[in-house]
Design a protein around this nucleic acid. Structure first.
Lengths: 214, 214
DNA sequence: GTTTGTGAACCGTTTCACAGCA
DNA sequence: TGCTGTGAAACGGTTCACAAAC
C-alpha cells in the first residue's frame, strides 16, 4: 500500500516553509506565531495553516497562537528531520561542487558525508573539505558512513546508472538533479530538482499573464 | 483576474516532462508516441496524458498515437517557449556559476545573457564567457539585452533587495534559488527552487515509508 | 477582541469507462 | 486490435464559517 501517507503531500511540502519561518522568528527571539503570520510567510491562508497544523500537534492556543519552540519540534519530527540525515553527492561537476559548498545544510538536519565522481582526474581532489572518491568505493562508504540519501548531480546520460548503483549501495532515497526520470524500485523515493522545468514553469506563467493583458 | 489560466497548473507542469520525452524520442528518430508511453515517461497514466493534451492541440490519431514533431511544437508554443527567453543571473557564487556553466539551457529556449554580482572583487571577472557586471548596471543591461527573466542566486539575506531591483529593472519573472519567500508585485511570477525543501520532502517520504513497514 | 480547531461546502483535478476512429 | 477523445463519476485538497478558548 505505497503512498498511504498520514498527511497529504501538499501539506508536507508547506511544512518546510513553516519551518523556515519558525526558525527565523525564533532567531528574532519571538515565542509565538499566529496562523495568519505563518500563512503570509508561506504564501497561503490562515485557514490552510490551521488545517495543516491540525494534523501535526495541538499546540495552538486560541487568542495567542502557536508556541514556536514546540511547533518547530513537532514539525521536525513529523517530517522526519530530527537527527541529521547523512547524504552523498555523486558527480563533482558544477552542481555537485555548489551543493558540497552549501554548508548551511548542516544546520538544518542534513549532512554531506561524501562526494563521488567517475573521472580519474577528479578522484582524490578535495572539495569543500571532502575528498572525492571513486565510484567503486560507493557501497563501502555508504555502509560505513551511514549514508541514507544519494544526490545525483551527473549528466543525464549517466543518471540512471548512478541511480541503480546508489540503490544497490543501500541508500533510502534519491535527490535527482539530472533532467531525466529515474526508474527505481518502489521502496526508494525520488525527488527531482529540474532547473529547466522550473524555468519552463516560469515562462509559462509569464506568457500566460501577458496573454491575459491582451 | 489573476491566475485565470487557460490550462491547469499541474497540467502545465507535466508539459515540461512530456517535452523532455518528446525530444528524446525525436532524437532517436521516432515519429509517434502513444499516451501510454508518454505517461510512463512522465510518471502518470495514459488517461491523464490524453486529458492534458486535449487542452493543447488535436494531433492525436486513434490507433497510431501523437505525431512527435507537431506535438512538440504545440507544447512549446503553449508554454511560451518558442523563441529564446533571455535571462540574467544575479549572484556569482557557487550556484550562480553552476547555472552559468549549464550551457544546455541554450538548446531549450533559454539563454543566460548576463551575470551580476555585488562584490567589487568579483565584478569584471569572466564566468563561462560572460563578464560579471556590477549591480548598478542592472537596469541598463536588462533593457539593452532584452532580459525578461531574473535568476536570484544570492544569500537569503540579500534576496529581497535583489528581487526589488530586478522588478524595477523590468524583468517579467523571477527564478529564485534563495530559501526565502519573496514579496513582489502580482504581475511578476516567481518560481522557487529550494534545495532544502527538496531534501525535506525526500526525508519525509523516506521516513513515511519506513513508518509504514512497522 | 483575537485566534484556534473543525465539520461542511466547494472546487479542481484525476480516474473511469466507453464510443468512435484507424 | 490499438489508441484517442471526452463526458461523467470519484477523489482529495482548499475554503468557509462559526463555536469554543484565551
Amino acid at each position: 500500500m505505497p503512498g498511504r501517507s498520514r498527511i497529504p503531500k501538499p501539506t508536507a511540502q508547506r511544512m518546510s516553509l513553516y519551518l523556515r519561518e519558525l526558525e527565523q522568528r525564533a532567531a528574532e527571539g519571538r515565542r509565538t506565531v499566529s496562523s495568519r503570520q505563518l500563512g503570509t510567510a508561506a504564501g497561503t491562508t490562515d485557514a490552510q495553516v490551521r488545517k495543516d497544523l491540525g494534523s501535526v500537534a495541538h499546540v495552538g492556543r486560541p487568542g495567542v497562537g502557536y508556541d514556536i519552540a514546540s511547533l518547530t519540534e513537532a514539525i521536525r519530527s513529523l517530517i522526519g528531520v530530527v537527527q541529521p540525515w547523512r547524504a552523498a553527492i555523486v558527480g563533482a561537476g558544477n552542481i555537485g561542487r555548489a551543493l558540497a559548498a552549501y554548508r548551511r545544510f548542516h544546520d538544518h538536519g542534513f549532512e554531506i558525508a561524501a562526494i563521488f565522481d567517475q573521472q580519474p582526474g577528479v578522484v582524490g581532489a578535495r572539495i569543500s573539505g571532502l575528498q572525492v572518491r571513486g565510484m567503486r568505493d560507493l557501497k563501502d562508504v555508504v555502509a560505513r558512513e551511514g549514508i541514507r540519501i544519494g544526490i545525483i548531480a551527473v549528466p543525464p546520460e549517466a543518471a540512471q546508472d548512478v541511480a541503480q548503483a546508489l540503490v544497490a549501495a543501500g541508500v533510502r532515497g534519491i535527490l535527482n538533479f539530472a533532467p531525466r526520470r529515474l526508474s527505481v524500485p518502489d521502496g526508494v523515493p525520488t525527488v527531482d530538482v529540474d532547473f529547466r522545468s522550473a524555468l519552463e514553469r516560469l515562462a509559462f506563467e509569464v506568457s500566460d499573464l501577458e496573454a491575459e493583458d491582451a
